[in-house]
Design a binder for these strands. Structure first.
Lengths: 273, 273
DNA sequence: ACATACTCTGTACAATGTACGTAGTTGCCG
DNA sequence: CGGCAACTACGTACATTGTACAGAGTATGT
């Protein structure tokens, strides 16, 4: 999302106090599953667009220019239609459009069968898939996780990822919690990665230049005696490595902890059996 | 983060394509540390406000009405000043104001000495403190984590939290990664919790009502045969418990995994010594 | 006294989501 | 076959946002 600056998009995101069109969960659900529940379907002029085309256009814009570039007007323009005609296909306006976008990218992912993989490999695969998804669609990071739009994409993804925990002896609630835990980690990491990737453009400053400038200014301001760990560790962890590499290292480190943490639960469960 | 609806504010946050005023990292840094680096300080009329008062007003509004309610105009009105006069004290505009807000709430937190606590208790305390901070200032969730504003609050917090890992034999890079890991988990959890807390108001629908409505509609649409885990586990994990309780359970579950995951690293490190 | 360096404010603009009303288009029913 | 009902499409309009810009007022230093 971008932009206090059209470029930034991730750092300070606000929302104008416009209204969410007419919210209607039932209609949104029908839209997600592409139910043409209209009693009479062929009355007026033949529709020149489809829900899918609108959503697809929005996703393309979001992928290429960030979520902030997705405006009702820009989507309409990409489709060669007038702004207001978008509301014909997505009556819920931008809020509903975002839910449709989320569901459609979830649906588009491949989900290979597990085969003979052990649970660690399966969970790792789930994490990697989500990570790749965030890399491909950074705007996904801004999507809400609770009460997601229960469309075919979301459900398919959920079903698949739950199956990674099959056969471990965990309870239903534990499986759900474990998955939430893994996905939460990936999301937090993706968030950092996305910020790190976008900030240089936003600030028109490379990572190195930024750290150097900060280091110089901080040197005059911060007392290393008062903040020994922060200055030493911050320098080691920040200045030495670029933002992208750092996110990468954090991912590997984190995944090891995640797997070890889940491992103890699994062992304990197996033992108790 | 935030949403399509002024009320929601957390789910889908967008930013109008306005410009971030004149960005100037050096000036922002000076502002963060409250350096009055003006060469001549007493020329024109005596300032009627201070940076602190502006920031404080903004934080109050954000706490009470959400980040979306923090507008240049609303902050000015809370101070009885004209909108543009805010720029006198915070030349960087809204972007800079947000960084000042973040730093000031970090600075205001108590940070008790560790005493005789073991590392598990220390790390748990760090997590709990961050969790409480998010509960008190939900808008913090929308703040960027990479390249934070290096003000006194951020540095003090960083120093303190790093010290929780003292004496474990971890390398500097490992300590930084471990802290990032813990904070990432807390942030992801806080995000869910905040969404869950805000959504009922936004949707004008209680959790129970929402799940019931969804369940009914989904029953007609989703085939339990195709999504056995999703329907069973989703029902168990979602419908039975409210959103708030769910976030709470996820926090406890996750913290156990986080500590176990770090525990293995610590053990291995100690053993290798 | 006068310049200088401030503070403060009003006006203005571009961009946003979307309500509303209107015009055009098609299939169905009589 | 005539008319109506349902539908698509679109132009206009408004409130709200961040902030550039220019000018007016005010205190201090010389």
């Amino acid at each position: 999302m971008s932009d206090g600056v059209p470029v930034k998009g991730t750092e300070t995101d606000f929302m104008p106090p416009n209204k969410p069109a007419t919210p209607d969960p039932a209609r949104t659900l029908s839209l997600l599953w592409r139910h043409t529940l209209s009693p009479s379907r062929t009355r007026g002029p033949r529709p020149s667009l489809t829900v899918d085309r609108v959503v697809e256009a929005a996703v393309t814009i979001a992928d290429e220019q960030g979520l902030d570039a997705v405006t009702v007007r820009s989507v309409a323009q990409a489709l060669g239609a007038s702004p207001m005609s978008v509301y014909t296909y997505v009556p819920g306006g931008k809020t509903e459009l975002l839910e449709l976008m989320i569901d459609v990218v979830y649906l588009g992912e491949g989900r290979p069968a597990w085969g003979e993989l052990g649970w660690r490999d399966r969970v790792t695969a789930v994490a990697n898939q989500n990570r790749a998804l965030y890399a491909k669609h950074p705007w996904l990071i801004h999507a809400s996780t609770s009460r997601p739009p229960l469309g075919p994409g979301v459900i398919t993804k959920y079903e698949y990822e739950l199956s990674a925990f099959d056969g471990l002896g965990l309870s239903d609630v534990e499986v759900d919690a474990a998955l939430t835990f893994v996905l939460g980690f990936v999301q937090a990491n993706a968030r950092s990665a996305a910020d790190a990737a976008v900030l240089p453009e936003a600030t028109a400053m490379t990572d190195a230049a930024w750290w150097e400038a900060q280091a110089e200014l901080l040197g005059r301001v911060v007392d290393p005696q008062t903040f020994p760990r922060a200055t030493r560790i911050g320098e080691a962890a920040g200045a030495a490595q670029g933002g992208a590499y750092q996110a990468d290292a954090a991912y590997r480190f984190g995944m090891d902890r995640v797997l070890d943490g889940l491992g103890r639960l699994v062992e304990r469960t197996k033992k108790a059996r």
